[in-house]
Design a protein around this nucleic acid. Structure first.
Lengths: 142, 142
DNA sequence: GGCACTATATCGATAACAGATATATCGTGA
DNA sequence: TCACGATATATCTGTTATCGATATAGTGCC
C-alpha cells in the first residue's frame, strides 16, 4: 500500500506492517468508519467530504478494495443497509478492527507530519477548520 | 506527487497543480524548511525526526530530488553552509517559495484527513505529542 | 594502506495510480 | 415501452513512484 511500505500482503496482523497507506486506502477506510457502504457510495463520500477536490478513479477504487480485502482491512457485508432500495449490483463493505487500527496509526503518522509543518512555519494557521459548506455525509451511501 | 496527482511538470506555478505530494516529497520539503541541506543530510534528518521509523531509500531520495528540481520546489545552492567541512561531493538544496506554498497546502490537506479521522473516532488521543526522545535536528546536515 | 562511513547516482522489478473501456442495472419521463 | 442518464462493478493499459541493489568514489581515522 504504501507506495513505499513494508508489508506482507495477507499475513499482516499488526498495523505497522501495513503502513504507510496510500491516500486512496486511507480515504476508503475513513469513508467506511461510520457505516457500511458500497463502492460507488465510497466514491461519492470521499468526493463530498473533500468538497469535490479529492476524486477516486474507478480503477483506483476497485483495485484498492481488492487489495484491502486481501489484507483484511475491510470485509464484504451480506446485509443490505438500505432495505427500501435494493440494487442487486451493489457490494457493501465494512471496516474491520484491523482496518480501524491501521487507519488510526496512519492518521497519527500524518498528524506528526502536520505538527512538523507547523513547527517549521509552513502552515499559516496553527489550528484551522476547513469543512465544506454543507455537511459531508448528506445522502451518500444510499 | 501524487501517487495520484494532476500536475504538469515544469509548468506548474500554483501549489494545487502539484498536489497531492508523495510522503517522500513532503518529507524532503520539511527537511529543507529550516535550512539548506545536501541529499544524504536530508536522509538523516527524516530518519532522525521520525525516530528511525521513516526511511528514504537512496533511489527514492535522488529520484525525488530530480523531479522536485524540475518542478521548481527546490533549487540547488552554490553556498557551502559548513565552511569547516567542505566535502566536494555534496550538493546542497534550498526550498523555494513555491516549495513552501506547496508543502503548506499539502499539510493542510493532511490536517483535514486527520480531522476527519478524529471526528470518526479513529484517533484515540485528540491531540498527542509524539516526538523522539532527543531533538530531531541535532547534528544532521553537517 | 586499509576500512567504515559518507555521498551521489542509476537500474530493474514491483506496485499503485488515472483514465478509458466494457458491461449491465436502475429510475424517470416522454 | 423504450430511450436515456445516472448508478454500479470490473478490467485493461500506460505512466509514475517506490525500494533495494549495485556502482563509483571521496573522506576521516587508525
Amino acid at each position: 500500500m504504501g507506495t513505499g511500505g513494508t508489508k506482507i500482503a495477507g499475513e499482516a496482523r499488526e498495523p505497522r506492517d501495513l503502513l504507510p497507506l496510500t491516500t486512496a486506502v486511507l480515504n476508503i477506510l475513513l469513508a467506511l468508519a461510520d457505516r457500511e457502504r458500497h463502492g460507488y457510495g465510497i466514491m461519492r463520500e470521499v468526493e463530498g467530504r473533500s468538497g469535490g477536490e479529492v476524486r477516486l478513479g474507478s480503477g483506483t477504487l476497485y483495485g484498492s478494495i481488492k487489495r484491502m480485502l486481501a489484507d483484511g482491512l475491510i470485509e464484504e457485508s451480506d446485509e443490505r443497509p438500505d432495505p427500501g432500495m435494493d440494487d442487486q449490483r451493489r457490494r457493501y463493505y465494512r471496516i474491520t478492527d484491523l482496518g480501524r487500527r491501521v487507519a488510526g496509526a496512519e492518521a497519527e503518522r500524518l498528524a506528526s507530519l502536520v505538527d512538523t509543518a507547523r513547527e517549521k512555519k509552513l502552515l499559516r494557521s496553527p489550528r484551522q477548520r476547513r469543512r465544506s459548506p454543507r455537511g459531508h455525509d448528506a445522502g451518500y451511501g444510499t
